[in-house]
Every structure is written in C-alpha cells, then in structure tokens.
Simulated assay, not measured.
Amino acid sequence: MVGPPPAERRSRRDLGVPSLVSVVIPVRNGVDVIDEQLSALANQDYLGPFEVIVADNGSTDSLRGHLDDHPLADRIRLRWVDASGFPGAAYARNEGVRVAAGDFIAFCDADDRVYPEWLRELTAVAAYSEAVGGAVETHSLNSRLVQSWRPMLPSETPYEIPGYLRVPPTCSFGIWRQMFDKVGGFDTSYNRGAEDADLAIRIQLAGGVLGHAPKALVAYRLRDTLRGIWSQSVMCGEGHAHLYSDYRHYGMPRDKW
C-alpha cells in the first residue's frame, strides 16, 4: 500500500477499503473518444470490485446504443444513466452518483485515459483521506505544440488555490460516498467551470481531509485548437470569479491582476 507523503494530513479515523468503487463518467457526445477510456478502465490493476457509470448529459451521437452493446460491458459492470435533465458536468456527475452502488466514488472524463494503477492509488490514499485528488499528464495524448499552450503541474504537486485550499480537477478524483452526501454533491450553479474546485473547498471546510495521490495518473486530452483553448480559458476565468464571490468570506484570497 502507498504511504502518505510527509506533508499529507490524515483523517482522524481509518477509512479502510471500499466494498465497491463506482466510477462516474459525465459525457455529452463522446462516442468517438469514450472507448479508449473504457478500455483503460478494463485494464485497471485494482483488485477490488468496481462498476462504471456513464452519465449522459444529453448526447445526440447515439452514445446509448453504442454502450448497450459494448464488448466491455460485463467486464467493467458498465451502466448508462440519463443525465439530460440539466446542462453541465456537475449535474451529470450528481446523477451518476445518485444511481451508484459504491461506497467510494471515482470520477474521470470520457476523453482522457486513466493509467492502469489509477484506482489502486486513489483507494490507497482514500484509506486516510475523505477525498483524493490524482494527477494528470499531457504528453501522451497531445502534440508538443498543444502541450505548450497549457503547462501542467508535476504529478507530485497538488493543485491548490495559492494561500488557500486544494482544488484537484475531477478528471482524476475520488471521494467517499458519505462525504459526498454530507456536502451535498456538486453545485449545479457552477455550469461554467470550477464545479470541481467548489466541491473540493466545501469538503475541506466541512473538516474533510483531501489527500493527494501522485501515482493516480490520468492522460489528459487538451483542447487542440487556439479557439478551443481560448474558450476553455474564458470558462475557467468565469468559474474562478464565481468561486471568489462564494468564498471570499471564507478566506479565499483575490487573484493578483
């Protein structure tokens, strides 16, 4: 089992090993990319049981039919759930968790690729953390040019708001179901980004330990056009402004210009 890094906090109690992990994937029109992620999940070296729930946020690309006859369906206990009632990944993830049977929830995205040890490393750190952020790399799914547009932190470094709290992305994230329910899941008002940071902040403000699993690695697919990067950057900026509005009275510092 992976031990905690020296600087890591530990929960006041031993949280143990999940009886079942539910992997939730929010997706809208991902039929052309999701198979790579599903294959990666089928190749996990995690020894415990897990299920995979695809929360479909209004796809129009025949995603459901594609998954109904998927060759990996039995191997990864694949389920499709209708999450089209409200636009956005926050709502889709909540709907996925709503039908999940697991006592530990892991989140990843349809267009990325988890490494074989991803679930094993997330659940190892979850033994002493109410929630766990993993790590991402951008070299295996993106060209060098595209990588240069958006540098990422090294896997050993947790994502955080400087001078405040950790905010790992939900493309590599895990949380005990009890804590997810305690904080009320994702806030669907964050429909322009930062829904993951908002959840992470609420977990920590509620007294939960948010651990870091540097070996729970995900190959992250970047936007591969300048227009796409710009659109994503604008969305992230709006999300961060939303965060500051909600948490400035809880000690969140304002960004420098």
Rank of each mutant, 00 (worst) to 15 (best):
5 P>T: 13
8 E>D: 13
8 E>S: 12
10 R>C: 09
11 S>Q: 07
16 G>Y: 03
18 P>S: 10
20 L>F: 10
21 V>K: 00
22 S>R: 02
26 P>W: 05
30 G>I: 03
32 D>Y: 01
33 V>S: 09
33 V>P: 03
36 E>N: 10
36 E>L: 13
36 E>D: 14
36 E>P: 01
38 L>M: 08
39 S>I: 14
40 A>S: 14
43 N>V: 00
44 Q>D: 08
46 Y>P: 06
47 L>E: 15
51 E>A: 10
52 V>E: 09
53 I>W: 07
53 I>M: 06
55 A>F: 09
56 D>S: 05
57 N>Y: 04
62 S>W: 12
62 S>K: 15
62 S>A: 14
63 L>M: 13
64 R>W: 02
64 R>Q: 15
65 G>A: 08
67 L>D: 03
69 D>T: 12
72 L>A: 12
81 V>E: 04
81 V>T: 15
82 D>M: 08
84 S>R: 02
88 G>Q: 06
89 A>Y: 01
91 Y>E: 04
92 A>Y: 04
97 V>A: 13
98 R>S: 07
99 V>K: 03
99 V>E: 02
100 A>R: 01
100 A>N: 03
101 A>K: 14
102 G>W: 02
102 G>A: 01
104 F>E: 01
105 I>Q: 03
105 I>Y: 04
106 A>S: 11
108 C>H: 02
109 D>H: 09
114 V>G: 02
116 P>R: 04
117 E>H: 13
118 W>A: 05
120 R>W: 12
121 E>P: 00
121 E>H: 06
123 T>P: 09
123 T>N: 09
126 A>P: 00
126 A>N: 05
126 A>R: 05
126 A>E: 08
127 A>H: 08
128 Y>S: 13
129 S>E: 02
131 A>G: 04
134 G>K: 08
135 A>F: 02
135 A>V: 01
135 A>C: 07
138 T>V: 15
139 H>S: 12
139 H>T: 10
140 S>Y: 11
142 N>C: 00
143 S>H: 06
149 W>V: 04
150 R>D: 10
155 S>N: 10
155 S>K: 11
160 E>R: 15
160 E>W: 11
161 I>E: 10
164 Y>F: 15
173 F>L: 12
174 G>H: 06
180 F>Y: 14
186 F>C: 06
187 D>F: 08
188 T>N: 10
190 Y>L: 05
190 Y>E: 05
190 Y>T: 01
190 Y>V: 01
193 G>E: 03
199 L>Q: 05
200 A>K: 00
202 R>F: 08
203 I>P: 07
207 G>C: 03
210 L>N: 04
211 G>I: 02
213 A>F: 07
216 A>S: 06
218 V>Q: 02
222 L>K: 05
223 R>N: 11
226 L>I: 12
229 I>D: 07
231 S>V: 09
237 G>D: 11
238 E>I: 12
240 H>A: 14
241 A>M: 09
242 H>L: 13
243 L>V: 10
245 S>R: 14
247 Y>H: 07
250 Y>W: 10
252 M>S: 05
255 D>V: 10
